[in-house]
Computed example of a mutant assay.
Amino acid sequence: MEPQTHDNNNFVALIVGVTGLTGVSLAETLICPQCLGGPWKVYGAARRPLPPWFPPSLLHHFITLDALDNEDARAKLSPIAHEITHVFWVTFQIRDDEETNVAMNGAMLTNVLNVLRSATSARLSHVSIQTGTKHYMGPINDPVRSLQLASHDPPFHETMPRLPYPNFYYALEDLVAAYAPSLTYSVHRASIIIGASTRGTHNALLMLAAYAAICRHEGLPFRYPREQVHMGAFLRHDGRQGAGGATRVGRDDGEGQKRSV
C-alpha cells in the first residue's frame, strides 16, 4: 500500500477497528481537507487483513493488530507511537460472560494506550471511544444476566445512572477517565449505526433498507417480521398487524393517511 501525501500532519489518527461500519466512515471523513484540522494522517488497525473492498487510499498505512496480545501491540504500534495524536476506539470483542468482556476489552484498550503513551516525545492527546445503548440496558448478551436485567426505560439520556451490573462499556469509560487530565477523552454512545462493511455485526438499518428496496421492486407491502416492540423505539408505525403477526410500517402521505413504505 502506498502511503498518502498529507499537507497537514498536525493531527495523526489511529483508528482501531477501521474495517467496521464506523471505522470506514471515520477514515473517509478525516482525510478530507474540509474536515476540522484536515486532511489528517490516518493509520488504521484491525485484527484481520484489509478486505478487498476497502479503499487503500483512505489510510496512510494499515496495521494488522491483535490488541489483546500485549507483545503484538507493542511490536506493531511502537514504530508509529510518537506520531499519534488521537485514538478512535471503534472495536470490541464479545463473549457470553460479561466479566470476560470487561477483562478482555479493557486489556485491549490498555495495551494500545500503554504503547502510545510510553513513546519518546509521545503526542497522544485525545481518546475517543464508541460504546452504545447497552450502557442503559445492561449486559444483554450475557445468557444468565440478560434474564434478570432491570434496564432503564427509553428514551435514554446521558445523565441516567449506571446499572448495577458488569458492563464493559463502563470499564472502557473508567479506563480513559483515569488518564485525565493528561489525556482528554470523549464517549459516543451510538444507538443504531448505518454503513457499509462486511465486518459489521450490527447493521440493522442497512438490512431493513435492502429489504424495503426488495419489497418496493416486487410491489409488496413492507412488513417488519418481528414484534411491534422491536420497532417502537426507532420508527413511527401505525400499530396494525400484517400477516403472521408482523408490524406494518407506514408513513403519513400529508393527508392524514398511512402508506406502506
Rank of each mutant, 00 (worst) to 15 (best):
A119M: 01
Y169P: 01
G254C: 02
R248G: 04
R236L: 07
Y170S: 10
G219R: 05
N203E: 09
D96Q: 15
P139C: 13
V42K: 10
S57H: 15
V229W: 12
S191H: 13
E98V: 11
A213N: 14
P52I: 04
L124S: 11
G44F: 05
S121H: 14
E218R: 05
M104W: 12
N9F: 00
W89T: 03
M231C: 08
M231D: 04
E28Q: 15
D7N: 11
L30R: 01
I193F: 13
V18G: 04
Q241V: 14
N105F: 12
S57F: 06
S118A: 15
T247H: 05
Q148E: 15
D66K: 06
G244H: 06
L220T: 05
A81V: 02
L116D: 01
P155R: 05
D7A: 13
K134D: 03
T110V: 02
P51G: 01
E28R: 15
M1Y: 13
R251W: 14
F222T: 05
P164N: 07
V176S: 08
L58Q: 11
A73D: 09
C35Q: 08
V42R: 09
R123M: 03
I129S: 05
A107H: 06
R47V: 01
Y224M: 11
T110Q: 12
Y211W: 12
S182E: 15
V115Y: 07
G250S: 15
D66T: 02
V127K: 12
N101G: 14
W40Q: 03
D7V: 09
C32A: 15
S146M: 08
G242M: 00
G106K: 12
F92P: 00
G37Q: 03
V112K: 11
G244F: 02
M160W: 00
D7P: 03
G20W: 01
L58F: 13
L50D: 05
D253S: 09
F62E: 08
Q130Y: 06
T85Q: 03
G44K: 07
F62P: 07
F11S: 02
T91C: 07
R189N: 15
S118P: 03
L205D: 09
N70A: 14
L208W: 15
G242K: 01
L116A: 03
A122E: 07
